[in-house]
Design a protein around this nucleic acid. Structure first.
Lengths: 138, 138
DNA sequence: TTGTATGCAAATTGTTTGCATACCC
DNA sequence: GGGTATGCAAACAATTTGCATACAA
């Protein structure tokens, strides 16, 4: 266990921003100016394998990482790209039922809803009322 | 709407194998020998945007696509990499609760459990009993 | 001292882009 | 006939790899 690994892990559990590997790399530049991206990637893989963190993969961009390894929902805003965690008791029951129904042995899960967060929703409503693009024009 | 697009869409809704873009490209080689990977990617993006298919993104390998656009679980076997769909009524309730709890407007979701499918589980149990790696060796 | 994590840079892979031609409507 | 999807190949970006050195135990 090295100080780089510890720092990466600490950074992840200390933030709720769900950073990308590069975000982490950037953030730790001050602390470890010589640290390479490869180290970040290797460490993240290690932590995922150990079950200490969760990987949130997106097809079209960089992976993001979640310091919370437990079963929870991720609410991902398609407008601001923010990710909020939400603990939802129903998830545990969902896991039970799925395991029973399919004889599946669950090791971990990933649960994401994509949509609009509260603040983006408000923002969009506001701008929509300011410029009503195509009301049945007169 | 072109025949390539139709073929890609048809292939996706006609299979439960959750193929990668390249799988689709390979599978349609006989039908469209001149089709390029770019066409597959462009079409998949289009279909995702239209809400007709779902993208299952993985950080460490190629994205896979799901012809089933509805709310359902994906049970992903970490041993054979198989993906099974599972309709689970609880998911709808989960979505409602999450939306209410976080004032979040859900557009779509992605729900994955990682673990061992039934057949891999049996297979592993069998091989484990054949070579009991480290029983209290007495 | 011994094993292993680091850091570097190049390689790999999945995916996207720009543009001319062919095709659908 | 007009617009647009296709196909090609090059560009791109995220991630992984190999290997010598530095570090932790």
């Amino acid at each position: 266990m090295t100080s780089q690994r510890l720092a990466i892990y600490r950074y992840l559990i200390g933030t709720d921003s769900h950073p990308t590997a590069d975000d982490i790399y950037q953030a730790l530049q001050k602390q470890f100016p010589t640290m390479s991206p490869a180290t970040v990637y290797k460490t993240l893989e290690l932590l995922v394998d150990m079950g200490l963190i969760t990987e949130l993969g997106f097809g079209d961009s960089a992976n993001r990482y979640d310091g919370n390894p437990g079963l929870h929902l991720n609410l991902i805003c398609v407008h601001c790209n923010g990710i909020a965690d939400l603990d939802e008791p129903l998830l545990a029951r969902l896991a039970e039922q799925a395991a029973a129904a399919a004889q599946f042995e669950i090791m971990r899960g990933r649960h994401e809803f994509y949509g609009l967060c509260a603040s983006c929703r408000k923002e969009l409503e506001r701008s929509a009322s300011q410029s009503p693009s195509r009301q049945t024009a007169g």
